[in-house]
């Protein structure tokens, strides 16, 4: 696969390490009320869609950016990629 790195252009996916659903950007507050249930949801449960999936890739053999890549899990078509840092600052995975 080729991943359109927002800074570096198309890069081969073998330069990257995959983590999973971009919902992992939205880490709950561990000191808040009801944290245990929220963490269970955050750590374990996944939408796992057959279709559009926002997901985290780390450019490990490259510039060490974490990216949020939007990809179709049925066709593998990639619809876009952005820096995870910016996605998080904009308000998380949503």
């Amino acid at each position: 696969m080729l991943i359109p790195h927002p800074l570096l252009g198309l890069r081969d996916s073998s330069e990257f390490t995959y983590l999973g659903d971009a919902a992992l950007l939205d880490r709950p507050d561990g000191m808040a009320e009801g944290a245990a249930a929220r963490f269970h949801d955050y750590v374990h449960l996944r939408d796992n869609p057959a279709g559009i999936h926002r997901e985290l890739w780390f450019h490990e053999q490259g510039d060490r950016s974490w990216l949020v890549v939007t990809r179709n899990t049925v066709t593998h078509e990639i619809l876009g990629a952005e820096l995870a840092r910016e996605a998080r600052l904009k308000g998380g995975a949503a």
Binding site: T17, L24, A84, R85
Partner: peptide
């Protein structure tokens, strides 16, 4: 190291 970058960029970029 990957995990630390994850924490830095994805969890607490601020």
């Amino acid at each position: 190291y990957r995990h630390m970058e994850f924490a830095r960029q994805c969890l607490w970029p601020e």
